[in-house]
Nucleic acid binder design. Sequence first.
DNA 1: AAGTTTGTACAGTTTTTTCTGTACGTTCTA
DNA 2: TAGAACGTACAGAAAAAACTGTACAAACTT
Lengths: 186, 186
Amino acid sequence: MHPFEGISEQHTQTIMKARKRVIEAIGKNMGLYGVTLSVGHLYGMLFFSEKPMTLDEMGKEMEMSKTSMSTGVRMLLDLKMVHRVWEKGARKDLYEAESDWHQTFADYFAIEWRTAVEANVHALNRSAGELRRLLEEHGGDEALASAVSKDLEKIESALSYYDWLDRLIDTLESGKIYDLVPKEKP
Amino acid sequence: MHPFEGISEQHTQTIMKARKRVIEAIGKNMGLYGVTLSVGHLYGMLFFSEKPMTLDEMGKEMEMSKTSMSTGVRMLLDLKMVHRVWEKGARKDLYEAESDWHQTFADYFAIEWRTAVEANVHALNRSAGELRRLLEEHGGDEALASAVSKDLEKIESALSYYDWLDRLIDTLESGKIYDLVPKEKP
DNA sequence: AAGTTTGTACAGTTTTTTCTGTACGTTCTA
DNA sequence: TAGAACGTACAGAAAAAACTGTACAAACTT
């Protein structure tokens, strides 16, 4: 990261310091996306890099092993926070940070939260089915019916929440969210 | 967790199995809220418990130390996923899972994401200020102006995103989100 | 086809996090 | 006011994770 040809040492320092503050902040808060401090830092670095970077360049800049860069980049790729870039006759793979953070946010939900919703809904439906069957077959048993009904209520309430969450994620994924909450300040 | 008085062993098994599946799924996916598998599991357990639980009861049920229950509960309290319950002349503290998951979801953003937004915005503004000053004072320097402008653009784009995210969180916190994405299926 | 170069799998090490047991301050009981 | 019970701070042990170096397969160069 020395893109500052023709710029004095002092001004370079100022720019680097400004960048570093932001990178640090980003890195620290990317725990919300389930990534390490160092992976967050890697993203921040790529965010400011004006040209796509290779694994070797990242490793040098971060003072970390190439292996770590490889796994770090893969995580960021999975989250769609980074994408591979093609360049004429390039030997090495090149990576670039996704700069549209609205998109990144939406992707995160479409990828991670959607998966969780599906897994939970699956479990909830399965259990709800079993409980409903129990209720059908032994509905006469007062104590049983009462206990099962309580659980079923909780499960149904959870399912209703996930239904809503799923629709919320839909609006993020489709971009319809920007009709509801506009990008530009009202 | 043996609320099943007057229910046969076999039916108790069925209910427990249904619960366990859900608790497991919940626990597994609560990593999205930044908590451990075991804390997620604790939450799931509380979710199905029909009466509020004490730390000792949780420890017994989870087969974990009371200390772990204490710290686990505090995390869940911080996330507002669990709240303390008052009971007539109770020696021990009692805790209960927040059952409104819409609220839990909203609180999570209001608590964790809002904090992150604020920290990042702070850093971005600070750095933007420094860069703008640099630009004002040495705008004549072609190379400098070009480099600084690129960084400023990125920062401003990020700030614009955070402004949007902040407003999105507002709609979650105020409940206005349910006008935009209704709880009930359309 | 031989020789490089590149990215990643894997095993081992280091670091971090999670969990436990003890100790102690606080609050309730008698 | 003495005694017991409760919750948590803290330090150490156990478990999990992050990170590194080596080794190797795939792709490219010549």
